[in-house]
């Protein structure tokens, strides 16, 4: 079932067009990669879908409700309760420990302190960083910070995770480990993922790929540009 829809989404930054009419559907629990060359509009699309940016024209619909016309407060509430967001550089709160960072989205959603803290530990463990639970971001490695940020993005078991180059700053092995775990857990709890990347090997984690070019959907599919010759694999 489709839960998130974009219809003819247009967005410019001043005179620079970033999206020129993008239409797409995201089903429940589906993992979709958004790829394309630098500057094609991937991040802008992710921000529009997540309700962070407002399109200039077109519609974004969440479970039948048009959210692009909602107030900032309403969209922000939606992001807290239904969405998770993850960027290339984790953007953890510098003053909080890893466990406090991961517990934060739960506390904002009204979960009790003790329960939030327990969940935070579980999620830090799932990403192999339980040992930095009481450490602040400034004293963690980049990889540890990104693992914590990934845990924080999934801790509320969101319906959709928006991830913009989530492993872009990590070494190959760490990136693969984080992504493998992210995809396993997302599938387990049926969190849909919009995965922005320019790397084919990262896009290969998705069920489906949407390729943007110059602010438009160039093509979409299983990463297949043309049919395979003679059915050969």
């Amino acid at each position: 079932m489709t839960q998130l829809q974009a219809r003819g989404v247009v967005r410019a930054y001043g005179p620079t067009p970033a999206l020129r009419g993008v239409t797409l559907d995201l089903a429940e629990g589906e993992i979709v990669a958004v790829t394309g060359p630098s500057g094609c509009g991937k991040s802008t699309l992710l921000h529009c879908l997540a309700g962070i940016l407002r399109p200039d024209a077109g519609e974004v619909t969440w479970r039948g409700h048009r959210i692009d016309t909602w107030s900032e407060a309403a969209r922000s509430r939606l992001r807290r309760t239904e969405f998770g967001v993850l960027f290339q550089f984790g953007q953890l709160v510098a003053e909080l420990t890893a466990a406090e960072n991961v517990a934060l989205p739960l506390l904002l959603a009204g979960t009790g302190r003790r329960e939030a803290r327990t969940a935070a530990f579980t999620w830090l463990e799932r990403f192999g960083v339980a040992e930095v639970a009481d450490v602040r971001p400034g004293e963690m490695s980049g990889g540890q910070q990104q693992r914590c940020a990934t845990a924080r993005a999934l801790v509320t078991e969101p319906r959709v995770l928006f991830a913009d180059e989530p492993t872009g700053a990590l070494d190959t092995l760490t990136g693969e480990q984080v992504l493998t775990q992210l995809v396993r857990l997302a599938r387990e709890q049926r969190t849909a993922v919009v995965l922005v990347t320019h790397e084919p090997r990262i896009a290969a984690y998705a069920d489906r790929e949407i390729v943007l070019r110059d602010g438009l959907v160039d093509h979409t599919g299983l990463g297949l540009d043309v049919p395979l010759a003679g059915g050969a694999r």
Partner: peptide, 17 residues
């Protein structure tokens, strides 16, 4: 296209719990 399809198959092997 064929390489990409194979890449996807092998990635699915990896992420299988």
């Amino acid at each position: 296209a064929a390489h990409t399809a194979r890449l996807r198959e092998l990635t699915a092997v990896k992420t299988d719990p």
